[in-house]
Write a protein that binds this DNA or RNA. Structure first.
Lengths: 222, 222
DNA sequence: TTACTAAGTGTTAAAAATACACTATATCTT
DNA sequence: AAGATATAGTGTATTTTTAACACTTAGTAA
């Protein structure tokens, strides 16, 4: 036990709720715990902070180690610290939420976790620790942010149609939107650029293809 | 050194940016550090998390111990963890911001800190650690929240006039507001109750007195 | 050629936000 | 008591934003 302190210290972890759009559904990335406690249960990717590591770096590192997912948009969510939230010892978890576009996805679970998988938000398995609470908060934050930021664009592939974009907003907000009003609004943001070309997508008229003028930027709007 | 761990653990602290309205200005509560590092410098009230204590409780306890301020509205702000933010050891700070109404205030610095005092935000002294950054973020969050929550009401005394309320909004947003439009808006929230009575306040017409229908509630509006 | 399906497009009405100026009621002074 | 002074209090017209609403277009498939 080489690390000694005059006063007790909690452990610090990061946990990340990663959202992506798959099969026209909002899905969440979970790992199956390989160790006790909650061995075999599903949990958010995350792990212990290294002593010289930034909080953000820790979240990204653990995520990549456990799931192979790397290229994403991430924001700090909230810090959870109920004294009994981890049976091993006192653990403070600095949580993040993140969005990946489906086309940047390549799942390749690492050694830390036995398994990683995507779950539709409506059908989450039983979760370890207080992770259900974390996910709930992340989901709320995400829905709220669609109203005053461009965060939802981070779920889009590099190119997309306006209908695809509308569908993302409808899924995040969980309500139908008017097509004409949505398009007017989306284009008025001046973040979309038509990249001449059409997407054939079924037995119907093909859609114009757009891309973001600043793909990595998330702005506060309105 | 009785506390031993297999892996290094960071220390965890909470720090709180407490805002109040004094002398028609937004002021911030600071303590002068009695110990190294940054001995003699001003800093946010805060301190180390006890091992069985909730994060929120820690923030409130440290605040009361150091300044005597107890009855306030508090929200978690952000968690700061740059590896070099404290020269002693790795310290993760879970920060909060809080609002007190001037009439609930009774400063009585405790033993932990040499001194506690209010500073107008425009005239802050040099600060310890990364506390200037924390304050900046808190100030931004507070201004933003005036637009979509009733958080600003937490700065009001138990009873107040509409002009006083308007003045608080003007200070938080740092802009003049139109008197008629502001009153229309404020009353339309249905959170204010006229408590028959007038406040004489100079050589001019006295103002009607209001109070909050739910003084401790902060709601998301609109 | 016809049936089918999603893409694409404007206008009108309702609601919300903004701009704007005078009267009322108290105190203080002379 | 008359007048000066200072903040409280009040309504309407205009602009902007949001919301409601239906048909035509361009492909594929039978």
């Amino acid at each position: 036990m080489p690390f000694q302190y005059q006063y007790p210290h909690p452990a610090v972890t990061t946990d990340v709720a990663v959202f992506a759009l798959r099969d026209q559904q909002l899905q969440l990335l979970l790992i199956r715990r390989a160790q006790e406690p909650y061995k075999g249960r599903w949990a958010l990717p995350g792990g212990f902070l290294e002593i010289d590591e930034d909080l953000d770096s820790c979240a990204k590192r653990e995520l990549e180690e456990e799931t192979g997912v790397a290229d994403l948009y991430m924001e700090q969510l909230y810090t959870f610290g109920r004294p009994d939230r981890d049976p091993r010892e006192r653990v403070i978890s600095v949580t993040y939420y993140a969005l990946v576009s489906a086309d940047k996805l390549s799942l390749s679970p690492g050694s830390d976790a036995a398994e990683a998988a995507w779950f539709p938000l409506r059908r989450l398995p039983e979760l370890a620790f207080d992770h259900a609470e974390i996910i709930h908060l992340a989901r709320e934050r995400l829905a709220a942010k669609t109203h005053y930021s461009t965060i939802a664009f981070q779920l889009m592939a590099e190119t997309f149609t306006l209908s695809e974009l509308q569908s993302v907003y409808e899924i995040l907000r969980n309500e139908k939107l008017d097509k004409r009003n949505f398009r007017k609004w989306a284009l008025s943001l001046n973040r979309l650029e038509e990249i001449g070309g059409k997407r054939r997508n079924g037995n119907h008229r093909p859609a114009k293809i757009y891309r973001l003028t600043a793909p990595d930027r998330v702005d506060i709007i309105r």
